[in-house]
Design a protein around this nucleic acid. Structure first.
Length: 576
DNA sequence: GCCGTTTTCGGCCCGACTGTTTTCAGTCG
């Protein structure tokens, strides 16, 4: 978590420098360092203690000195000076679509205003249109951007973006002349939150496709409409953009539109080293300007001496090096999931009875379903008191007889970790349960040491099989506990406790960075829907997406194991 | 500010679209 704080500081520096008009490469260097810190699976403090900060990509002498100052003193003189020169509130302006650092600087220097409120007032009063390089349309654009920002603060969850994109693609595929229509951008990479929807169509006639796109139901504003690219804004502030390319160039176009930016930069560098220039239109030989067209992405990667790289890995987190040396992982696939180990029924806050939930799991082809209702300690969820578990077990046994042996039902519980770190059930009851999940729902704002120690106490309990949604984050408002994740991962590895990747779109917890760090330390992961109703089973794909972004293979995820192996693990890991 | 199988200095990916401009700057991805 400290890494994210460091990253935020350097991002802030980058924004302020950019508004100040600093050369762009210096700005980019700070952003690169921020990205690098954010995706670092180990606390930067560790590197600092060992004097190895410079080994982190994007960190050189200047940024190393700044990290050192921050970790020693808790402050950064450079940032404080910068903030006295450029009002930090201007950073908020950069979130306004259509307003970038240059115009933000121009407005501030000419009008002397610094807040979003003042900016909106100035735009409404027509005071922007006469600034150098501004006009009426620019002013109107900024005003519209301000309104969009208020409707949709920042990014939308994948669980909302993906279904919307699928509906749009259906419409586009019905347009005459459309040969292919696909998702791209962070959607295709399955990031947990999406800035805007990127879509790509292969067609020889862009005109009718663009027409259909800007006329989509719910479109409120057309932001741009050209031959190859258009973008629109929906009534709720969500934005989508569409590229149209001929089919024979679809490979380069799709690769380009999928990103990430950093991944693409690395590919372009690699292309240049081979005497090729890579753009969304083609690979071009530098010596004679000859174009090499790629209809498929595989051809693009092959021309660069690489196997095709799954979109979820395209974040410049080592995937290009892995691909080049034939070490790309065989990523887990949704079809490999056989078990759901975290689900709720009417015994606590679920909507379905044990039998109804079992039938739903069966319809989705699952082989194992654990019934894991809340313990009584989580008052709001109406959890079970210890003595109710005998009755629940009888009901589960009855349901097992009713569904037959194609689905194995397990009797478990999601046990609350209390504020003092003890569990809600006595050890004698935990020992009788098939699956014991421990989780935090309250006291998430405790100081780092305290909340970490609670989780460690739960992990050390010999009856605990898994920690559910470890940080407790809830999108978009709750950031999650300030955990010493390093300590948590180490304890989980030591005590053979699995960590959950909760598939609910508002959780996705662990996230991809931590899940990858966990697997690298030998910790087992478990992808679960935390189902409270039948539709919740459909969220599985989001959990699998996190796992894929975390480079996980099937063997590292216990839900892919055959029932007998899973049962054996549940028994044995408690007394290894 | 970072970085190095053509570099310790001179690069740092490339292009579309819009709007304010008479040839280009700003924004975005």
């Amino acid at each position: 978590m400290e890494n994210r704080q460091l990253a935020a500081i350097f991002r802030r520096i980058a924004d302020l420098l950019e508004i100040q008009g600093e050369v762009i490469y210096k700005v980019l260097a700070y952003r690169k360092a921020a990205d690098s810190l954010e995706t670092l699976p180990v606390e930067a403090r560790r590197y600092w203690q060992e004097g190895r900060l410079r080994e982190i990509p994007g960190i050189g002498q200047a940024i190393e000195e700044k990290i050192d100052e921050i970790l020693r003193t808790g402050r950064l003189g450079f940032l404080e000076r910068l903030e006295s020169e450029v009002p930090p509130t201007l950073i908020e302006w950069l979130r306004v679509p259509g307003l970038g650092p240059k115009r933000a600087g121009t407005i501030w220097r000419n009008l002397g205003i610094t807040t979003l409120e003042e900016l909106e007032k100035a735009a409404r009063e027509g005071r922007l249109r006469n600034l150098p390089g501004f006009g009426e349309k620019t002013e109107a654009n900024i005003l519209a951007g301000l309104e969009a920002l208020q409707r949709n603060r920042g990014r939308i969850p994948l669980g909302q973006a993906l279904p919307l994109a699928e509906r749009i693609l259906q419409v586009l595929r019905a347009v005459p002349g459309v040969e292919r229509a696909e998702m791209a951008g962070s959607l295709r990479r399955m990031r947990s939150t999406i800035g805007d929807l990127d879509l790509l169509v292969a067609s020889r006639q862009p005109q009718p496709v663009m027409e259909a796109f800007v006329r989509l139901e719910g479109v409120q504003r057309v932001l741009a409409q050209g031959e190859t690219k258009s973008s629109v804004e929906f009534f709720d502030g969500v934005r989508a953009q569409l590229w149209v390319h001929p089919r024979e160039r679809f490979g380069t176009a799709w690769q380009y539109a999928t990103g990430s930016k950093d991944h693409n930069v690395r590919l372009r560098e690699r292309a240049l080293a081979r005497g090729l220039s890579l753009s969304e239109h083609a690979l071009t030989r530098l010596e004679d300007g000859q174009e090499i067209l790629c209809a498929e992405e595989e051809e693009v990667y092959a021309a660069l001496g690489l196997p095709w790289i799954p979109p979820e890995l395209r974040e410049d987190r080592g995937e290009i090096e892995a691909a080049a040396s034939g070490r790309l992982p065989k990523l887990i696939e949704i079809a490999e999931i056989q078990a759901n180990l975290h689900a709720h029924t009417t015994w606590s806050d679920g909507r379905l009875s044990v039998l109804e939930l079992a039938r739903a799991a069966q319809r989705r082809g699952l082989k194992v379903l654990a019934i894991t209702d809340h313990s009584a300690g989580l008052g709001v969820a109406g959890g079970l008191r210890p003595e109710q578990h005998q009755e629940l077990r009888r009901e589960i046994e009855a349901a097992q007889r009713a569904v037959g042996d194609s689905l194995l039902l397990l009797h478990g519980a999601e046990v609350e970790i209390r504020a003092d770190g003890t569990l809600d059930y006595p050890d004698e009851l935990l020992a009788e349960l098939d699956v014991v999940i421990a989780s935090l729902h309250s006291g998430l704002n405790q100081p780092r040491e305290r909340v970490t120690e609670r989780l460690l106490m739960a992990i050390r309990n010999p009856h605990v099989d898994m920690i559910a949604h470890p940080t407790g984050r809830l999108f978009p408002d709750r950031p999650g506990a300030d955990l010493d994740m390093e300590a948590v991962l180490q304890a989980a590895a030591e005590h053979h406790v699995a960590l959950e990747i909760n598939a609910h779109p508002s959780r996705l917890d662990l996230d991809d960075v931590y899940a990858r760090a966990a697997a690298e330390r030998g910790v087992l992961l478990s992808i679960n829907t935390d189902a409270h109703r039948e539709e919740d089973f459909d969220t599985l794909r989001y959990g699998v997406a996190v796992a894929r972004r975390a480079w996980l293979t099937a063997s590292q995820v216990i839900n892919t194991w055959p029932p007998q192996r899973l049962l054996a693990w549940l028994k044995e890991h408690r007394h290894p």
